[in-house]
């Protein structure tokens, strides 16, 4: 894990397709990165479910956020972290999610929060 200071860490802790939180959190992260701010994303708790591949939001007449998530590397947003314990809880493995992520244990999570100037929780 990189040890540089982050300008912004956006935390996602809600499941997908349950409102606008996820999309509006991604919007801030994208704008922040466009403004040359060192920006990272953290998916924790139920938020890790946002990273499941093969979601079918159109079945619910929703747009979903998969396309935005897959486009993150194009915006230089390649610091994507997930809570390891949450992956275990849901029986997920990091290499089967819809984009490359770095799992963090509790100590590493603490370090990530400590090196972030600003936190936004979505």
């Amino acid at each position: 894990m990189s040890t540089s200071t982050l300008d912004l860490l956006v935390i996602f802790s809600h499941p997908p397709l349950t409102g606008l939180r996820g999309r509006e959190g991604l919007d801030v992260a994208l704008v922040s990165s466009t403004f040359d701010q060192n920006t990272a994303l953290l998916f924790m708790g139920e938020g890790v479910l946002q990273l499941l591949p093969d979601q079918q939001p159109d079945c619910l007449q929703l747009k979903g956020t998969q396309a935005m998530l897959k486009a993150l590397p194009l915006y230089d947003l390649d610091q994507v972290y997930v809570e390891e314990a949450a992956l275990l809880r849901y029986g997920l493995s990091a290499d089967k999610l819809l984009l490359p992520v770095q799992p963090l244990n509790n100590v590493e999570l603490q370090q990530l929060l400590q090196r972030s100037r600003h936190l936004l929780s979505h």
């Binding site: 300008d7 801030v28 704008v31 403004f35 600003h118």
Partner: peptide
């Protein structure tokens, strides 16, 4: 725009 929030944060 959201840029105003990001600018404020920076």
């Amino acid at each position: 725009g959201l840029g105003q929030l990001v600018d404020g944060m920076s």
